[in-house]
């Protein structure tokens, strides 16, 4: 997850093409306070207590424009420039509650909030309060931004290894570090899996033949780091003795659910919260096969 050099704020405002694409006025809404931009250096000036989630991805900067109109809710458009399309996808999938909309490479609308991603851009457009007019403006702004982004970006390669059958689409998450894992699913108060900006994690829930389970697929930069994380998970979560060449069978936990881990090269396939051992085995086997292809 490399971060390329971040240009200064004045240059961003002057040159950011999506700023030029936004209209100064739309359906009576006019630009309010001056356009703002926040980089990795000062994201906390914009969202103190929340910037960490963006810094956990290859976030470069966020451009913020406010639209105001008398007797109408104000609308704020935030355009996040990421270094990669895979991390734009990851940030977009941080919260998937809402109704899917055909826009960009993925969009969700929820009660006055539009979230979308395309290429290396993630967008949030939100009204103080939802009204039919505000919703129409939000959708117009979203469409304008999407049209101004010339190309699509690739999703993370890691997702190709996920079994497609039984995957609950809204449960899919992609991230790198512990702070993101903890925001979605609490495994432990310490970094059992040795997650870092260099790791990639795809997490999803599955439902198959009446059974449910959760898959965490982790790609490490080296085999050695995968082996170390494998050992930590076996010893600290499964509470079994770890030997690198010995398979540890899935284990039934205190809540009656099954958990298991398998390593293949620099990948860890972790299945947890499995109602039955059969769904755990199926997810593990299918993911392993996908990784070999």
């Amino acid at each position: 997850m490399g971060q390329s050099q971040i240009p200064d704020k004045g240059k961003i405002l002057a040159a950011f093409p999506l700023r030029q694409a936004l209209p100064p006025e739309i359906s009576g809404w006019k630009t309010g306070r001056e356009d703002q931009v926040f980089t990795r250096d000062n994201i906390f000036d914009y969202m103190n207590g929340g910037g960490e989630i963006y810094l956990a991805y290859d976030f470069q900067f966020v451009f913020v424009r406010e639209y105001v109109r008398d007797d109408a809710p104000s609308i704020v458009a935030e355009i996040y420039q990421m270094s990669s399309s895979k991390d734009a996808f990851g940030v977009f999938n941080h919260d998937t509650d809402g109704d899917e909309v055909e826009l960009g490479q993925g969009a969700i609308y929820a009660a006055g909030l539009l979230r979308l991603w395309k290429d290396k851009i993630f967008v949030r457009i939100m009204a103080d309060r939802e009204t039919p007019e505000a919703k129409a403006v939000i959708m117009q702004l979203g469409t304008t931004i999407v049209r101004a982004i010339s190309q699509d970006g690739e999703k993370p390669n890691l997702l190709r290894a996920l079994p497609s059958e039984g995957l609950r689409p809204k449960s899919l998450r992609y991230f790198h570090t512990l702070i993101s894992l903890n925001a979605h699913y609490y495994l432990a108060n310490v970094n059992i899996l040795n997650l870092s900006p260099e790791t990639q994690v795809a997490m999803a829930r599955y439902e198959k033949e009446g059974s449910e389970a959760r898959l965490l697929l982790v790609e490490y930069p080296t085999v050695e780091r995968a082996v170390d994380a494998h050992g930590r998970f076996v010893e600290m979560f499964l509470l079994e003795r770890f030997e690198a060449d010995r398979k540890v069978p899935p284990k039934k936990l205190e809540n009656g659910k099954f958990a298991g881990v398998v390593r293949g090269g620099k990948y860890l396939i972790i299945v947890i919260e499995a109602d039955k051992k059969s769904i755990l085995d199926w997810i593990t086997k299918t993911t392993s096969q996908n990784l070999e292809e």
């Binding site: 108060n189 310490v190 050992g231 010893e235 600290m236 979560f237 030997e243």
Partner: peptide, 18 residues
């Protein structure tokens, strides 16, 4: 093989167990 110590680690299982 060095045994990993959980130390003050609290895992999801600790919550499940109460």
């Amino acid at each position: 093989m060095k045994k990993r110590r959980a130390g003050r680690a609290f895992t999801r299982r600790d919550f499940i167990k109460g």
